[in-house]
């Protein structure tokens, strides 16, 4: 996935000279996960900018850069360090189009690695998508595969609205697949039916899609697996159509439960497919605690066995 993202950045930067990359250690170092590797050499320090260590100003300045005609692609080094950016994202980036009645817009992308599974320090394993998805005016995109990562990042860079692009860091290098060298896009706002099925709908996104796929092998049921790909604006149509067909749904996420994206999915199913439901919508989520360090993390992030078990319970309801 790292390479796919890298190619997307290279292609868009070559195609459009207003696309610039900025963040901490994104230049010479190529980013701590090497997503921006080689960009500095290819496009120079004026377009691949190592900034001072100041997350709020990275977004704040990007708003001004966008106003001045650039298309900034910002990097926050980790999920936990995207939080100082919330003020600029929520107070300004997301609402400048609204405030200026369409005259100005924050055409920018914020990308950052999120989630657990890499045995990192505190603040390096969070899944904060709900903070961003709750904000009108922002788009929130989370790819689960290298193919989607490339196509979605291209779409995000071209999108006229501010896009928060969260990269599942534990599958950065864990999933390998052939990605076309040629240019293509994956649309924002469109979910992907990973596998069709008729008994139960399994909804997930990002890193958890891998666990969901593994769970398919542990369950005898015909599962329809949907990867949301875009958290906001969400493709509820695909989810609803599926649940109307299966009558059952399990939503799987890594993030804590309270007021999270899975609640939005469950509420939407309840509203739009109530009469089709044969069982309550089940949520398999992280817990309303801080995600533990590596030694205990395995209990927190649902594995394929827990997911398969919950599928079974919903089937037997």
């Amino acid at each position: 996935m790292v390479e796919a993202l890298n190619i997307a950045l290279k292609q868009e930067m070559a195609k459009d000279s207003s696309v610039i990359v900025l963040g901490e250690d994104v230049g010479k170092d190529g980013g701590v996960f090497r997503v921006t590797d080689g960009l500095w050499e290819k496009f120079g320090g004026e377009r691949v900018i190592d900034t001072p260590l100041a997350e709020s100003a990275i977004i704040g300045a990007s708003i001004g850069l966008a106003l001045g005609g650039m298309k900034p692609v910002c990097e926050a080094q980790f999920d936990g360090f995207s939080l100082p950016m919330l003020d600029q994202l929520i107070s300004h980036a997301s609402r400048i189009r609204w405030r200026s009645r369409g005259r100005f817009a924050a055409h920018l992308v914020l990308r950052f690695p999120y989630g657990g599974g890499i045995r990192a320090l505190e603040h390096h394993s969070d899944s904060p998508e709900a903070y961003y998805a709750h904000t009108p005016g922002l788009k929130v995109v989370i790819p689960s595969s290298p193919y989607d990562a490339k196509g979605l990042l291209v779409s995000a860079i071209r999108d006229p609205d501010p896009v928060v692009f969260m990269e599942p860091k534990r599958v950065y290098r864990a999933i390998r697949e052939d990605v076309p060298e040629t240019e293509y896009t994956v649309p924002i706002g469109k979910a992907n039916v990973v596998q069709e099925g008729s008994d139960i709908t399994l909804v997930s996104w990002g890193a958890m899609v891998r666990e969901c796929k593994e769970a398919l092998a542990l369950t005898p049921y015909s599962v329809e697996l949907i990867d949301l790909r875009t958290i906001s604006p969400m493709d509820t149509k695909t989810v609803i159509e599926s649940v109307k067909k299966t009558g059952r749904a399990v939503v799987v996420q890594e993030a804590p439960r309270n007021c999270s994206v899975s609640a939005e999915v469950a509420a939407t199913i309840q509203k739009e497919a109530f009469l089709s439901l044969k069982a309550p919508v089940k949520r398999v989520t992280g817990f309303d605690t801080v995600i533990p360090f590596a030694r205990m993390e395995g209990f927190y992030i649902a594995d394929e066995k827990r997911i398969a078990k919950e599928i079974e319970k919903v089937m037997k309801f």
Binding site: A61, G64, L65, I96
Partner: peptide, 23 residues
């Protein structure tokens, strides 16, 4: 640019705009 109500947040916007002009 539009009026900024949250104190000091507009500073970075001006910085970014100046940056775009320089680039």
């Amino acid at each position: 640019f539009t009026i900024a109500v949250p104190v000091s947040t507009q500073i970075a916007h001006a910085v970014g705009y100046a940056w775009a002009m320089k680039l």
